[in-house]
Nucleic acid binder design. Structure first.
Length: 489
RNA sequence: CGGGGCGUAGCGCAGUCUGGUAGCGCGUCUGCCUUGGGCGCAGAAGGUCGUCGGUUCGAAUCCGGCCGCCCCGACCA
């Protein structure tokens, strides 16, 4: 009695996630940890990607890699260490990346002399161009279409699981072309590949368009992006594609002998998406119960939960579950069976919702009597009783419907949070409301002023947005067309 | 780099103000029980209290240094 302690009881807090409404950022972090997607590591800004999270990445990789191969690209691998001198070759490139680059100053137990130090790649344009210079001799070697899957490192000041980590995984495509037009076409083609991937597989609507000069990649002539809207109405740049022009070719003398017999610099592109996409996926679809992932990328499509009190009850249920699992797998679904007797069904329902399994199949003695099972969809929580004979086709139909529904819901959300604004006051007033389409005079000064005063940045000038002349909301000067402003990750 | 918070069992935390045997919940292990929305009972294992030093008969607790992580801002995919 005397030593009665306040024993924090098992509260909702321990079981449930913070809600998106009360704290979006906390919700995201807790979800990532509780769904076992990733852990923080002891290395600041770095994370451990756990099997549940890595499986998502593997699925993304598989699809994207197929799309790259279909468009004629080949994979290769270049070193993680880049001679520091390479980076220094291009002033703009080095100046913009310098604060983010980790430098290797010691090796072999000794300090490396100045000039022989290495940087850990923040991106690979320079070292890849070093090779390209050797590989390209003639116009017959073009186009050269290369991709690499790799890790890169950028020393970030403010890391966030998946969205911005010091080390991250990505793919970087690097191509060389004979003409400017070919390179420009490649840049836009790969941007479109990203858009297709985002929309058809991630079920995440994106706006593709051109970045402003101040948001451009260091060393590019022009940069294009796909931009998505998260559930907190902030924008997330989900992929970029760069028209590099001849900037890197000139640094590394990457030249070819043309059809005219003369030497020419190649025209280049580069493009990439990263593990940030996992963060985008989470923040686009997930809810307060946990992770929601579109079936096309889900590591697990269905979990069959066996219900029954006694071994006598469970045995026939288990046999039926195994038969059903086999049928589902035959139909191409990724299925697991949960026969753990130490956990109750309620616990399991919550657990698989947290982990983002698309379909829950409940199977118990009562179902066997009726020759049915229960199918529950993750996104809508819709629960149906389905005869076992048609369970496979029903499951497929539910997954298809879920894939469509996730995209439709995300698109509706984005569209209802996209506004045309026609004055600076309106821009300020709606700063937290989503995507704002506004006229801007095109100067970096005005762009910087808007960022300073409102926290809004330009996302891109979307291709799908008809460009009609107007007046800048800040300065009143001429504007060629509206551009998207938003808060952003 | 500035502002804030934190470091005690695998996880979440109490204990620190006011120094005196290291605690609670969850999880884990054993056994029983239970199973259609986060079951129950009994028992058990598990901690150099971030680190180094100081004060003291005695430090998780007081003092000082260091390290690390998280959150909020300035940089970024």
């Amino acid at each position: 009695m005397a030593d009665e302690k306040k024993a924090p009881a098992k509260k909702d807090k321990d079981l449930k996630l913070p809600t998106r409404e009360e704290n979006f950022s906390e919700w995201y972090i807790e979800l990532v940890k509780r769904a076992k997607l990733a852990d923080n590591s002891d290395v600041r800004g770095s994370m451990v990607i756990r099997p549940n999270g890595y499986a998502l990445w593997e699925n993304m990789q598989r699809v994207l890699d197929g799309m790259f191969k279909d468009t004629g690209h080949q994979n290769a691998y270049f070193p993680v260490l880049i001679p520091e001198s390479y980076l220094a070759k291009e002033k703009k490139h080095v100046a913009d990346f310098a604060p983010q680059v980790a430098v290797v100053t010691h090796a072999g137990g000794k300090p490396l002399p100045e000039g022989e130090r290495y940087v850990i790649r923040p991106t690979s344009e320079t070292i890849i161009n070093r090779s390209f210079t050797n590989w390209v001799q003639s116009y017959r070697d073009l186009p050269l279409l290369i991709n690499q899957w790799a890790n890169v490192m950028r020393w970030e000041m403010r890391p966030r699981l998946f969205l911005r980590t010091t080390e991250f995984l990505w793919q970087e495509g690097h191509t060389c072309h004979e003409t400017k037009e070919d390179a420009q076409a490649e840049t836009l083609k790969m941007l479109d590949v990203y858009k297709t991937f985002a929309e058809d597989f991630m079920a995440m609507p994106v706006m593709s368009g051109q970045k402003t000069d101040s948001e451009k990649f260091p060393g590019a002539d022009s940069t294009y992006s796909i931009e998505a809207m998260m559930q907190d109405k902030k924008a997330l740049q989900a992929g970029t594609s760069h028209m590099l022009g001849q900037n890197f070719a000139k640094m590394f003398d990457t030249m070819f002998q043309g059809r005219d017999g003369q030497k020419h610099y190649v025209w280049q592109t580069s493009w990439g998406v990263s593990t940030r996409l996992i963060g985008a996926l989470i923040m686009t679809h997930s809810d307060d119960a946990g992770l929601v992932v579109p079936p096309k990328l889900a590591p697990t499509h269905a979990v069959i939960i066996i219900i029954g009190r006694t071994p006598e009850e469970r045995a026939p249920v288990k046999a039926k579950a195994e038969a059903l699992a086999a049928d589902l797998k035959k139909a191409g679904l990724r299925v697991i069976i949960d026969d753990d007797e130490t956990k109750g069904p309620g616990f399991k329902y919550a657990e698989y919702e947290l982990r983002g399994v698309c379909l829950r199949v409940e199977l118990g003695p009562k179902d066997l009597e009726k020759g049915q099972c229960v199918l529950a969809r993750r996104d809508t929580k819709e629960k149906v009783f389905e005869p076992l004979t048609s369970a496979v086709t029903k499951a497929q139909a539910m997954l298809d419907a879920m894939q469509q529904a996730l995209f439709a819901k995300a698109k509706a959300f984005r569209d209802t949070h996209t506004f045309e604004v026609n004055s600076y006051d309106e821009l300020k007033a709606k700063a937290d409301d989503g995507f704002l389409l506004a006229h801007w005079d095109g100067t970096p000064e005005t762009e910087a002023r808007i960022k300073e005063e409102t926290g809004l940045t330009t996302r891109n000038r979307p291709f799908e947005l008809k460009q009609e002349p107007g007046k800048c909301v800040v300065t009143g000067k001429d504007s060629p067309g509206r551009i998207v402003f938003s808060r952003a990750y």
